[in-house]
């Protein structure tokens, strides 16, 4: 059945037994919704320097959105931010491929369980479900670092302007 390409065993496993679910301490929290279907997620990130120490989340939604958040937690926790960004961009590329992208070895190594979502990209209505937690993570990360930068600036010396004679 064609449906099996979307509901891969690994996706249903993550849906039934989500990894890292529940809200824990974080540096930033965001709440994202998918207005067309009512999927919601609250997500927190905790960083230590550039290392992701935790991504915790709570939400309600379909199997695809919930499994995707679980896979995200598996993949990103412990990673450096630059590596995590690479993973996120690769996942986005896969999800926007409309089923036309066959993941190669490099992509499989990078995305691990997340390559199972390749089948979802054939269903335009469901792509947003798969991306919900990833967009939330991106937003939370921007906030965590945005605030950190703002705090550094507030504490440090005001930037000096060089005047040329």
């Amino acid at each position: 059945m064609k449906l099996d390409s979307m509901y891969q065993e690994v996706i249903l496993d993550h849906y039934k037994h989500p990894h890292g679910r529940g809200l824990r301490d974080g540096d930033a929290e965001v709440h994202h919704v998918n207005p067309t279907c009512g999927d919601e997620i609250t997500l927190r990130v905790r960083y230590e320097g550039d290392t992701i120490r935790d991504v915790s989340y709570e939400g309600q939604g379909c199997s695809i959105s919930q499994a995707s958040a679980s896979v995200l937690n598996d993949l990103l926790v412990g990673k450096e931010l630059s590596e995590a960004r690479k993973i996120q961009e690769s996942f986005l590329e896969l999800m926007q491929s409309r089923g036309r992208l066959e993941p190669d070895d490099t992509m499989e190594d990078l995305l691990e369980d997340a390559v199972a979502f390749a089948g979802v990209s054939k269903y335009p209505a469901r792509v947003k479900c798969a991306l919900l937690s990833w967009m939330a993570w991106k937003d939370a990360t921007a906030q965590a670092f945005g605030e950190a930068e703002a705090a550094t600036q507030a504490l440090g010396d005001p930037p000096t302007k060089e005047t040329t004679p």
Binding site: C37, G61, I64, Y123, R126, C129
Partner: peptide, 11 residues
């Protein structure tokens, strides 16, 4: 979730 219900019905 209704999304999953609808998808399997659609199939």
């Amino acid at each position: 979730h209704p999304h999953d219900v609808g998808q399997v019905l659609d199939e």
